[in-house]
Computed example of a mutant assay.
Amino acid sequence: MKFLPTPVSGAFVVEVDARSDDRGMFARTFDARTFADRGLVPVYPQCNVSRNHRRGTLRGMHYQAQPRPEVKLVRATRGRVFDVALDLRPDSPSYLRWASVELDAASCNAFYIPAGCAHGFLTLEDECELFYQMSEAYVPELARGVRWDDPAFSIAWPFTPSVISERDAALESYSQEASV
């Protein structure tokens, strides 16, 4: 596996070393020891799947607040998405910066998003599915989010979403008082 740094401190694009032959392809997508040796979270007690039917579906920008912020390891298992990590950690050198990666099921790449960062994605084609490995169990009372189009961040989405939930559309703009 290769860990490619991003503009967000502690966030990495994880690329696999795929082996292909006449049967198809094989790749190791996760190894706890490799992650631990790099100082990254090696244990994920919860996994989630997100299925999205239409191109232009936006989910985000979500995070879980203290005392149980989550690390996320996100991978597209079908389709392609524009995936974003937004640093909301006031003590981080990349505070209020964002990083993006195109997650593509064909490449088996993943995005390691550190605790304290908000996460969101925009589907680039119909019928996308994402698989999330989470370092913490979901706690509804700690669920938070910020607007995907907040001018405080100026995230360069590839196009305007056409599908967004009422909850995500109603998220507030960011303020330091509401930070993680």
Rank of each mutant, 00 (worst) to 15 (best):
R89F: 00
V13F: 12
L171S: 05
P90N: 03
P93M: 02
E136D: 12
Q64T: 02
F121T: 01
P90F: 03
P45G: 10
W157G: 10
L40N: 13
V74R: 12
A65Y: 02
N48M: 09
S9A: 14
V8S: 08
D149R: 06
C128W: 01
F131L: 14
D91C: 06
A110Q: 15
M61V: 01
Y95A: 01
F159K: 05
E129K: 05
E15K: 11
H62W: 02
S173E: 13
V139R: 14
A169K: 12
V146W: 09
G120V: 00
R78C: 11
R78P: 10
P140S: 04
A99F: 03
L58I: 01
T77D: 13
Y112E: 09
G56V: 01
R51P: 12
D21I: 01
D126H: 04
S94M: 06
F30E: 05
P151N: 09
R38D: 12
E102T: 12
E70C: 05
K2Q: 15
S162Y: 01
K72W: 02
L40H: 11
W148V: 03
R28K: 14
A137D: 12
A143D: 14
D104F: 02
S154Y: 06
S165P: 09
Y174D: 06
A156Y: 03
P161V: 00
T123Y: 07
